[in-house]
Design a protein around this nucleic acid. Structure first.
Lengths: 196, 196
DNA sequence: CCTACCGATCGGTAGG
DNA sequence: CCTACCGATCGGTAGG
């Protein structure tokens, strides 16, 4: 019984993982349940023994990765760091998520529009509050004169978007190491924030 | 006859414009020809008097906006600017495209994956050469010691991605003016490049 | 986990 | 530009 449950859980995990991979490659609407079933190695109808619906899979992928982001932020708030240090940590965190949980992260930032109305509304409000927390870090840094005067909103949008560029590295021949990418991008994005 | 042609051309333009709007909102695969026809005000079958296929519309939208980007770069090469000045111009150009031709630009950067094999291959190779030209500007700036030592590839990915963040401003209540956005983002992205 | 199948909708065509 | 319709495919269910 316990074993059967574990087996079922891991099968669901396999389905979700394959789904993330395909949603990233072709997008959510262009991925059919038949494609997904084939890549899992079963018939389409059999998927429904493990999941409720196609959109439930999307919801699951997105909510677990966005929970990771929020958890990181919670830990950060109590670490006694300066505004700039917190932003530094956020940048590195997102770069690492992009590199290590590429499929899930990519699906979150590119396919969230296809969530059902309620999960969509939840995601949007979560995202807004996440952005606002980052804005407050920038504001702290400006008040402490370690960050140059800049609209915090623009700084946060820039940072969160910049990381998406790593998608192209991920697709390409990978001429650089993840460490090089991280160091160079942090140098750029932190360098642009520092007051002279 | 001339008038009929003009009328037909403008009808096609209307279809393409509405399509760009819907592709941006819901994505290319999730937009049906029936949805599109309704927003144009005709029956789905009638669309095919003006366009060949759904994917031809996507191709048309993407190639005309990517031509704009390449044209800007050609003009820039002969203006006698420094590497940093050229990068400055590229950043401002992309911000303005994002704000002024929002639908087309958005479709290009988010829906290009759904191009047919041949147009897709063309787009990818065009994009690669575009990125390489920008990298050479960064390299020039580094050689001239006006730009800090940084991997040009990472700098270019960061810049091109950062602009995508303005999508969220475009969706939101628009608390800031386009000028504020442009100045702040340029301050950030150019500030991060300058050598101290 | 499969076979068999559902109603809906898709991009696109024929013919006028 | 419309009506009528095509074959294909979609997400999902019934029943075993």
């Amino acid at each position: 019984m316990a074993k059967a449950q574990r087996k079922k859980a891991s099968k669901k995990e396999l389905i979700v993982q394959k789904a993330a991979c395909m949603f990233r490659e072709k997008g959510f609407p262009a991925t059919s349940m038949r494609d997904l079933a084939e890549s899992v190695g079963i018939e389409a109808a059999s998927l429904y023994n493990h999941i409720q619906s196609k959109s439930e899979i999307l919801q699951y992928i997105i909510s677990r990765i966005s929970d990771d982001c929020n958890k990181h932020l919670d830990e950060l708030e109590n670490a006694g760091l300066s505004g700039l240090q917190k932003i530094d940590s956020v940048i590195r965190f997102h770069i690492q998520m992009m590199l290590q949980k590429f499929e899930d992260y990519h699906v979150m930032i590119n396919e969230w529009i296809h969530l059902e109305p309620q999960p969509l509304a939840d995601f949007i409000s979560q995202r807004r509050s996440y952005v606002q927390r980052l804005e407050s870090f920038v504001s702290e840094g400006i008040a402490a004169k370690e960050i140059k005067p800049i609209l915090p909103y623009v700084a946060v949008l820039t940072i969160l978007s910049a990381v998406r560029g790593l998608e192209f590295w991920h697709r390409s021949q990978k001429n650089y190491t993840p460490e090089e990418l991280e160091e160079n991008m942090v140098t750029y994005l932190i360098g642009g924030l520092k007051s002279n």
